[in-house]
Computed example of a mutant assay.
Amino acid sequence: MIIQPTSLAAMTWAGAASGTAAESWRVGAMLSARPLGMGEQGRMVLQIGALTVEADPLGIPLPSQFQVRVLAMGNPPLLEIIAGAGADPLVQRALRERLPQQNGYAPLLATLGALAQRPVVRQLPPEVRAALALLDQGVRTPQDLTRADGLREAIARSGLFLESELAQPRANPLPLGEEDFKGVLLRLAALLDRQPRLPAHVPASGADTPPPLRQRGLQAQPRAPLPLPLAEAPTEDDVGQLLARLRGDVHAALARIEIAQLDAAAAQAWMIEIPLQGAHGRDVLQIHLEHGQDTEAGGHTWTLGFALDLPALGPVQGELQLRDLRLNVRLWAERSATTERLERQFTPLRQRLAASGLQLDQLSCQTGLPQGHGQASALLLKATA
């Protein structure tokens, strides 16, 4: 988060930067902090040490007093809030290690789809082909996700819950690693790491996709082009480049899953991504699932948000809020033509919801994607003079 000093603190900040308060701002130092309220422009006003600074709202309550750790100096210095379970230093360190490594699923899915249609796959080692086949089986179809049991299965096998499932006794004789998306990625990564004559570190290909952190909100992710041509008759060097590309994309996808797992460690909320078989390509469905309490009426609430970028529809987002049997549905579409298409489905949707026993309080669709962030923070602060 970028923090701008208030006008009242400008001289104090200048003094800290010039060295008069440098000792208290050394790397690793712990500073006392407290919230002072909201500024004129809707920003939080915080006192950190001797400085008064403004910050974008975190979206989570802060205690009346807390501490921050100086992670890096310079302009801007980097501060870490030490407050609550979400600021577990081990979790925060693990997050910082994986954030530079992660990337979205789209590049991996593009390679996987191309390999399935080209003879180059026959030149890959047999064990790699078998692992790729398992990975391909983990790509869900739209028919899978339109059934309640299919969606439940896709979420359970998304990779986010692998370790908790491994800790439970299982009646299914099929190894969990052959069902779970993260388990298959781990198996494929181990096989690719053992391939000879591959570079030790291969960066992920494709665009830098924002990490699946709750405070970033939902991110509709388009398909990725395939930058590496998969020739019909590749040379041995071409196969080596392909394996190196695969390894980079697999490790980036694994880092992405682990970021979502770490981010969910201290909250009843999950960011889940499901590979989806679309028309002439693969897409990524992102889901935000959160369980909470209704502070006004009591009882429990469930919120399910989703984001999807389909070539025929463009980016689409939605949010479903369920309180007991009362349901609110809000949709957003970047294209006005997509808004019209969705609104034409409202009547049959209302009928299906009424038949299921739910009371629909709101059903709407707006053109333009929602702005803003989620209700959590990674608790990493950047202060700028």
Rank of each mutant, 00 (worst) to 15 (best):
A220P: 15
G183Q: 06
Q92N: 05
A94Q: 13
L363T: 02
A29L: 04
A190L: 09
L62K: 04
G49C: 05
D238K: 11
G74W: 02
A269I: 02
A50V: 09
D180R: 07
E340G: 05
M271T: 11
A355V: 07
I259T: 03
A252C: 05
L226V: 03
L108K: 05
W332I: 03
L213D: 00
L320H: 09
G159H: 02
G299R: 03
A33E: 03
P169G: 06
S7Q: 13
P119M: 06
H251E: 12
E97T: 13
R335T: 01
K182T: 07
D144I: 04
P175D: 11
L331R: 02
Q4I: 12
A10R: 11
P199C: 08
T209L: 02
Q215E: 14
E179V: 10
G74R: 01
P227T: 13
V27T: 14
P348L: 06
L62S: 09
E319D: 07
R157N: 13
D180K: 10
L99M: 12
L8G: 08
A354H: 12
A106D: 00
R223L: 10
L308T: 06
G177K: 07
A337M: 10
A167V: 07
Q168W: 02
L124C: 09
R43N: 15
A376E: 13
E236W: 03
H288K: 12
R98E: 08
T339V: 15
S7L: 15
E232Y: 08
F181Y: 11
M38C: 01
L243V: 04
T301Q: 14
R214H: 06
G177M: 08
R344E: 11
A269Y: 02
L95E: 07
Q101T: 08
A265W: 07
S18T: 06
V316Q: 03
P61R: 04
R170V: 00
G138N: 08
T347I: 12
L162G: 00
E296P: 02
L174M: 15
E232G: 09
M271S: 13
A333G: 06
